[in-house]
Amino acid sequence: MFLTRLKRPLTPKNSQFIIDTIVNKGEKITIKRGAQYPPVNVPQAVSNHARFRGNAFKQKGVSVFASNNVMACLDEEKGFFSHGKVVNGFSYKTAVDKLNSAKDYADYSKFKVLDLTSPGGKFYSHFLFDVLPKVQVIKSLGIDLNFFDKIIINFKDLPFIKEACELLKIDFNKVEGRNAQNRILKCNCFVSVSEPRDALYTSDWIVDFIRETFSSNLPISTSTSIYISRNLGSKRIITNENELLDELNLAGINTVYCEKNTVKQNAKVFRAASVVVAPHGAGLANIVFCRPGTTVVELFSSHWSDEFWKLCIACGLNYIPVQVERENGTMADLATLDYANSYLKLNAENMRVNSLLSLFNCSEN
């Protein structure tokens, strides 16, 4: 199983030999996972939400594609030609159409290229759970990351990305952000990894890898209760947060601004927490560092996804979703939200919390 392979001590191998082996096996190999999680209790507060996808708990298989003659389209929906033929299972029609009509491409024929791009990969939670696990997949095969001349990711210039590269001993000079010039490229040594998550379910091997990377050997401090503020951002903020903070302080709940910290600093904060309260957003990705049994209270008005509920399941955390008012004081009808036509509006919608009591006088059936 893949989990066994990930935990097995790696023995030095010739990276080119491993890549050639993948090419000779048909240019794609799949590392299978298996394991289906048993049924779980659905949070009643969100069971009828328009974005609820609570049926995806399978440990997804991950595939590695390698070619010594590739044309690649690295859009959000990717596509690949290997020796002039479409790579099935890795290619979307939209990307294939772009490759067929492309008049220009970036010539990377002199470089050995690793593609780590992923939909949404420049955002914190997607970088942690969709991009970085691809590094572990490559390492699990015995391929040395230093073998590559170019490592392409969604976006390079963010502090948490540089921090991750340093911890994983990735040469940051080899890292290249995806851009208009390299979205379509030609290469004679190219490796790509399929998406490690299905419907935003974070498998246990991803949880283990993220913890080992950022929080191994961290001491556990005295248990604390924390509130994650989004008010340094531009959307999904608590508009009356100053009033809320007064109540939180009286209740002994500390306020944390995750964007001010390094990933390792956040790992230390969340590992010490026994209660985490937060509006829906990327800060909740840090619950991956929480100890089993920690209570996570996720606030939302309209926009919500089941990503952090699923992460709580993977990490053994107690999850409580709480719907609060919209900024205008109304409550959204969760079953009738029109994401098809109003996604950006719903995604950015601010919130209002009338009382601290509304956060904790909630229970799941």
Rank of each mutant, 00 (worst) to 15 (best):
F57W: 02
F57D: 04
F57K: 07
F57C: 06
F57P: 03
F57S: 04
K58N: 15
K58M: 14
K58S: 14
K58G: 14
K58L: 15
Q59H: 11
Q59Y: 14
Q59G: 13
Q59T: 13
Q59I: 09
Q59C: 12
K60N: 06
K60I: 09
K60Y: 06
K60M: 08
K60D: 05
G61D: 13
V62W: 02
V62T: 12
V62K: 07
S63V: 01
S63D: 00
S63C: 01
V64C: 04
V64Y: 05
V64E: 03
F65C: 08
F65W: 06
F65I: 06
A66C: 04
A66T: 01
A66F: 00
S67T: 02
S67R: 03
S67V: 03
S67D: 01
N68Q: 12
N68K: 10
N68M: 04
N69D: 06
N69H: 05
M71D: 12
M71Q: 12
A72C: 07
C73G: 08
C73E: 12
D75V: 14
D75G: 14
E76Q: 14
E76P: 09
E77H: 12
E77F: 14
K78L: 03
K78H: 09
K78M: 09
G79P: 00
G79C: 03
G79H: 03
G79Y: 03
F80S: 05
F81P: 05
F81R: 02
F81Y: 05
S82A: 10
H83P: 08
H83N: 11
G84V: 00
G84F: 04
G84I: 07
G84A: 06
G84Y: 02
G84M: 01
K85A: 02
V86F: 09
V86C: 05
V86I: 10
V86N: 10
V87C: 13
V87Y: 02
G89W: 03
G89P: 00
G89K: 02
